[in-house]
Structures are given as structure tokens and as C-alpha cells.
Design a protein around this nucleic acid. Structure first.
Lengths: 110, 110
DNA sequence: CGTATTGTTCGACATCCATAGAACAATAAA
DNA sequence: TTTATTGTTCTATGGATGTCGAACAATACG
């Protein structure tokens, strides 16, 4: 597959980050990513939307600098750029993730 | 004028909050509100958009629970619901405001 | 090679959204 | 009362967005 384009930390904007996290589907995906703390293929995370829709959301998250995606075989492994974002916007992503978990805890039994 | 409708703290959602803050014009307005720490009429804050557009943004912020607006004479005074939001989503708004100021400091000379 | 798995890309579509101007409403000031 | 100030509402518009199905691409597995 094609290699993915990722913005550098400098290119990440606060409003871009907030916008990427403001969609319920995306926020839920990021939340899953954060709790598992490791690379995940798209299919490993339960989503309520179609495959193509998820691909779109992943692209939004990637272009906003929220996630990093690399290819391995047929699946694309996604990881959260947590430390990078925390370095640029200290506390933001951490607080959002904590708030998301407080508002709607993930069911950790899949 | 009409009295304004404000959501209760329970009705404030995380995605709604993030979406409200994800627009540059709105984030800048909230940033001004935070640094001045007191009620402000709309006109007291410099904005790059038309009056009607600002009215729209204010409504978005109000309906998301970010600001509280009350009427006094001809002007509507807007205040940030900082403590309420911090109580519900600890750290989120604070970190966003700090990040906003680090990314684009306000010129405090008007 | 043929098939399955995993995502991406491409229309298409409905909706939301940021923007602005014009008209209006309500109060203040003269 | 007339005028000014302040902000809302209405309408319109161009662009972004979330959603999906179908077709496609690339690799893995028989």
C-alpha cells in the first residue's frame, strides 16, 4: 500500500486537534487506542459505522496528527501520538481522554 | 430581549464542548474571556467576522454550555462557565486555554 | 493460481456549518 | 420623540462533513 503522510508536531494545530476529537466515533476510537496502549489494526476496534466511513475517520485523525498509521501486510496498524501531542499541548489530550472515560467508560471485555 | 437558554452541567457533552472550541474564532473569543476573567459584552472583544456571524458563534458556545449570557440594557454580557466545566471535565478547558495561549498569545493592549 | 482478508478510493448524497447582509427588536441617549 | 447602540433573526450561499455502497488494490493463505 501507499505510505501515509503524517504531519510533524509543528504542523499540529490546537483547533485541528480539537476538531478531530469532537466526533463521537473518532473520540471513541482514540479512547480505545489509549486504553490498549499499543498499535491496533482498524478491525480490532468495534465501530458502529461502515468500513469506508472508518477509513475516512482514520484519515482525519492521521492528518490532524492524532494517530500514526503504518502498514504491515494487509492491515494498517494505528497508534496514538500521545507523547508528541502532550509535548506540544501539555495536558490537553490526557484530560480529554480522562473525561471521555468518565463520561462513557469502555467495555473492556471484547 | 429574550432570556437565553442554557444547558445544565449534566447536559454538557464532551464532544459538544470540543466542537465548540474547535473553531478558531470561537476559541479566540473564549481565550479573551478567560484572560479578562469577567463578563464582557460582545463588542468589547475584537473579532474578524461580521456581527451576525459572531452572534451565531455565541449561540454555539452558549448551547454547548461554554458560556453564560445575560442581558443588561442593550448589551448582552458573556461569561465563561469555567468552574462548572472544570467540575464536569477536570483539566480539559484549563489545558485547552493554556495551549491556546502558548500557541497564539493574545495582544493585551486594547 | 484462486480466494480471502484488510483497507483505500470513488462517487453520491444529505446535512451541517461558517459567513455575510438586510431587516428587525430593544434599550439608551439626545 | 428621534437617533444611536447593541445584538438577534432571517435568508442565502459556498464549502466542509459524515455516511454508505461499490469497485479497486495489496497482501496472505489455500
Amino acid at each position: 500500500m501507499k505510505p501515509y503522510q503524517h504531519p510533524t508536531v509543528d504542523q499540529i494545530t490546537l483547533t485541528g486537534l480539537l476538531h478531530a476529537l469532537s466526533d463521537p466515533v473518532r473520540l471513541n476510537f482514540v479512547q480505545c487506542l489509549a486504553t490498549r496502549m499499543c498499535e491496533q489494526p482498524c478491525g480490532a476496534i468495534p465501530t458502529p459505522v461502515a468500513k469506508s466511513t472508518m477509513s475516512h475517520h482514520l484519515r482525519v485523525l492521521r492528518e490532524a496528527g492524532v494517530v500514526r498509521i503504518r502498514t504491515e501486510g494487509t492491515q494498517s496498524l494505528t497508534s496514538l501520538r500521545l507523547t508528541e501531542i502532550e509535548a506540544k499541548f501539555p495536558g490537553v489530550l490526557g484530560a480529554v481522554l480522562k473525561a471521555a472515560d468518565a463520561e462513557k467508560p469502555l467495555e473492556e471485555h471484547s
